[in-house]
Amino acid sequence: PWQGRSIASSRLRMLEFSAFLEQPQDSETFNKHLFVHIGQSNPSYSDAYLESVDIRQIYDKFPEKKGGLKDLFDKGPHNAFFLVKFWADLSVNLQDDSSFFYGVSSQYESSENMIITSSTKVCSFGKQVVEKVETEFARFENGRYVFRIHRSPLCEYMINFIHKLKHLPEKYMMNSVLENFTILQVVTNKDTLETLLCIAYVFEVSTSEHGAQHHIYRLVKD
């Protein structure tokens, strides 16, 4: 049931995704702030399908050269392509403190045992500025294979970016900067190079009191 209703292709399903800041309170406790978060969902067949977005509307927000979003989509499979609009929660006090930990955690599951590679490209005006590549092995748990990228440290570029964003006095200014800031995550089977998931992330700043929010869309070409 999750196919078409959550971030899942026929080969791999995203279970959870979060970018966070951990600040030590005292020697034993941490305060964890979630900038963005996609929690566990358990869609059923009665749930509606995700809305779709024509991928051509966002091509220029992501790398367009060889191996860019268009090439990836043309290669397929099309059911692996998603757009996530995040309303990031920036309601946190940031100080330059080396005891702070900025991290990203994500989890995936599959019915297949494989090695996955996750490439995360941060883009400014559609051009890649930094890329992180991670390789993860599967763990067999409860009848399926689970992949965990646990507490991957956020890169310097992203930490600086968040700090600079926080220093802007008005939310509309932050959103104006975020209009040209995107992230493209591509998860592939390391051995076959098959695209398992391709997720295009775009951002605004949350105005909610309930923290980070998001919408998920299927990317299609009508």
Binding site: V53, R56, I58, D60, K85, E179, S206, H210, Q213, H215
Partner: peptide
């Protein structure tokens, strides 16, 4: 590309793209 410089607000995106969910 053809969409270069077109503000996101002027693109063909679902209405929900501009509606922040209010769920907790």
């Amino acid at each position: 590309g053809v969409m270069d410089q077109v503000p996101m607000r002027k693109r063909q995106l679902p209405a929900s793209f501009w509606e922040e969910p209010r769920l907790t």
